[in-house]
């Protein structure tokens, strides 16, 4: 067991080094910070209520950038290994393919979460300066659930990268994630009004698609609503863990079948 932990640790470290030595991630981080931070100082037309809208804009940006980073990071890991053939010396070491998947996944997730920390730091500054709110229970829950969201997005990106081309994977993953974010909550209601075939299709989609909307705490933060029950949070994180694990098992299946 200890050798597996040692291997996963090595894979996480190398994933982090890789991601932070690539300049495109830095560009997204700087762009995000540049867009977020000025919002904390702007007060247009002297309207005090405008803070709510800026809060919402800031959260949308945090969501967009974090999802793009998570997908960008996870969807490139294996295609890069195959393209540069670094997979050969890697798999020649006493490391199982399942461990490679787990290590690379945790590495990509760690990188995406570290970027998320920077975005949330900028967001907290925004809320602190604008509304004088430096901490709330709902904010903590939003951050934790956002990590759960990234766990699911990174797993989807990694699974897709072993099944299809990078461009197809990124496109489909973005479509699925944003479609579920917008329409996920209403899928079952929509299914109930359809004929049998459409109903079956929608019910299947409802069952297998990632319910990104579960992780969305933006409205609670924007309108300063109270936090949800921690049990609900735990259930959603459990959903993230199960969904990610299933995706990683599928990724493992495809990596094991892959001919080098």
């Amino acid at each position: 067991m200890s050798i597996v932990i040692c291997q996963i640790n090595a894979l996480i470290k190398v994933s982090l080094l890789e991601l932070y030595r690539r300049k495109d991630i830095a560009v997204v981080l700087i762009l995000g910070a540049v867009l977020l931070l000025p919002l904390s100082f702007v007060s247009p037309f002297g309207l005090s209520g405008a803070g709510t809208y800026f809060n919402e804009i800031a959260l949308v940006m945090v969501w967009l950038f974090s999802i793009f980073i998570a997908l960008g990071v996870s969807s490139r890991v294996f295609p890069y290994e195959f393209e540069k053939r670094t997979i050969y010396p890697l798999l020649a070491k006493p490391v199982g393919r399942g461990v490679v998947i787990a290590g690379r996944y945790l590495g990509a997730l760690t990188a995406a979460v570290s970027a998320l920390c920077l975005f949330y730091a900028a967001y907290v500054l925004l809320c602190g300066f604008k509304q004088g709110i430096w901490f709330s229970e709902a904010l903590l829950q939003a951050f934790i659930l956002h990590i759960g969201l990234l766990a699911v997005v990174v797993a989807i990106g990694m699974m897709g990268s072993l099944i299809m081309t990078t461009s197809a994977n990124v496109t489909i993953s973005i479509l699925v994630v944003f479609a579920m974010l917008l329409f996920g909550a209403s899928l079952s209601a929509l299914a109930a009004t359809q004929n049998l075939v459409a109903k079956t299709v929608l019910n299947i989609a409802n069952a297998i698609a990632p319910h990104i909307e579960f992780f969305d705490m933006r409205q609670r933060l924007v309108h300063e609503w109270p936090a949800v029950s921690w049990l609900v949070c735990a259930a959603v994180m459990g959903y993230a863990a199960v969904y990610s694990t299933v995706c990683l098992f599928i990724a493992d299946f495809f990596l094991k079948r892959r001919r080098f």
């Binding site: 200890s2 090595a10 470290k13 190398v14 540069k84 670094t86 010396p89």
Partner: peptide
């Protein structure tokens, strides 16, 4: 076929880690 962004000693540390 090695990771170009790694330093030489980092590469050895990485492979050493994989070997336990």
């Amino acid at each position: 076929y090695y990771y170009p962004y790694l330093k030489a000693y980092e590469l050895l540390r990485f492979y050493g880690g994989l070997c336990g």
